[in-house]
């Protein structure tokens, strides 16, 4: 093989390597899409969950979420979709504490990470992150490859293995089979709230923040049973919002923050 062929082949190698691997090394590359606030990111939605107020046996958040999103619950552990689910957690070790510790009730949902592995994984950018912090699935673009489910370390994304049957909430879509779903912080409710606030700023006094279905249900349940609510939703960028105050006054942390995903759902009492 003479030198010209070698140079040609070497050029192809260089081009190929750059195309395939050079781009991921541009670590500054960002996959954010524009948000209503623009890239200044005035609002950053997040949630605070006070585990001490969550009670075993209550599934209000989960049921409200299913009703809102027209998700059919069949009781099948393998295929049912749970955008938010409540788990009972017990201490494993040390043995002494594990024997006497009370079990905790913990709601788990999509953490809307600031560095989401699912957004990095989606081959068509159907899973994307807005500047207002919400991680969404664009069901118009999704091809159903399920790589986002593989990439999510929190098991927060569930797949529509079957067609959903009921259509209780006619104001909302009902996903077909073949696409994954994950909690979207009720982005539709946020959009409608934003429009109401834009048209009439007085609305902010009555509704300082939008309320996702799970938070609404938790509040109702808390009122009915006379306890405090577990879920709080709000703007993490605003020092006056409920969520910011809760995080500042309590030892709050996200789940497995060590993974580097920067989750935006904070737990108190874990």
């Amino acid at each position: 093989m003479d030198r010209r062929d070698f140079v040609k082949a070497g050029g192809v190698l260089l081009a190929g390597t750059t195309c395939a691997y050079g781009l991921p090394l541009l670590s500054a590359y960002s996959l954010s899409t524009p948000s209503p606030e623009g890239s200044s990111g005035k609002r950053k939605w997040g949630m605070v969950i006070d585990v001490r107020n969550c009670s075993e046996g209550c599934n209000a958040c989960s049921e409200a979420c299913h009703k809102e999103h027209n998700i059919t619950s069949r009781g099948e552990k393998d295929w049912d979709i749970h955008l938010i689910r409540r788990v009972t957690v017990k201490r494993k070790y040390p043995a002494g504490a594990a024997a006497i510790a009370e079990p905790l009730s913990v709601p788990l949902l999509c953490n809307h990470c600031d560095d989401p592995p699912c957004v990095q994984a989606c081959p068509v950018q159907a899973t994307f992150k807005r500047d207002d912090g919400i991680v969404l699935v664009d069901h118009h673009r999704c091809i159903g490859c399920r790589y986002c489910m593989i990439a999510c370390p929190y098991n927060a994304r569930h797949f529509n293995f079957k067609e959903n049957e009921e259509w209780a909430n006619k104001n909302y879509t009902r996903s077909t089979h073949g696409v994954p779903q994950s909690c979207n912080f009720c982005a539709a409710r946020i959009r409608k709230w934003r429009k109401r606030v834009e048209e009439d700023p007085e609305v902010l006094k009555r509704e300082p923040e939008p309320v996702p279905a799970c938070v609404e249900a938790c509040e109702k349940q808390a009122l009915a049973s006379g306890k405090k609510k577990a879920l709080t939703f709000g703007n993490l960028n605003d020092p006056d919002s409920d969520v910011s105050k809760l995080i500042a006054d309590n030892p709050a942390r996200g789940i497995r923050e060590d993974l580097g995903t920067k989750p935006k759902v904070f737990y108190i009492g874990l």
Binding site: Q120, C122, Q125, I143, C145, R146
Partner: peptide, 28 residues
């Protein structure tokens, strides 16, 4: 044959995610 929405296959050609191995690999 494993895709959930095979009818959306054209999306994987129109949209590209530089950071996704599942986007780079079909190109490769």
């Amino acid at each position: 044959t494993d895709l959930g929405r095979l009818d959306r296959l054209s999306m994987s050609f129109s949209y590209f995610n530089f950071l996704s191995m599942l986007s780079i690999n079909p190109f490769l």
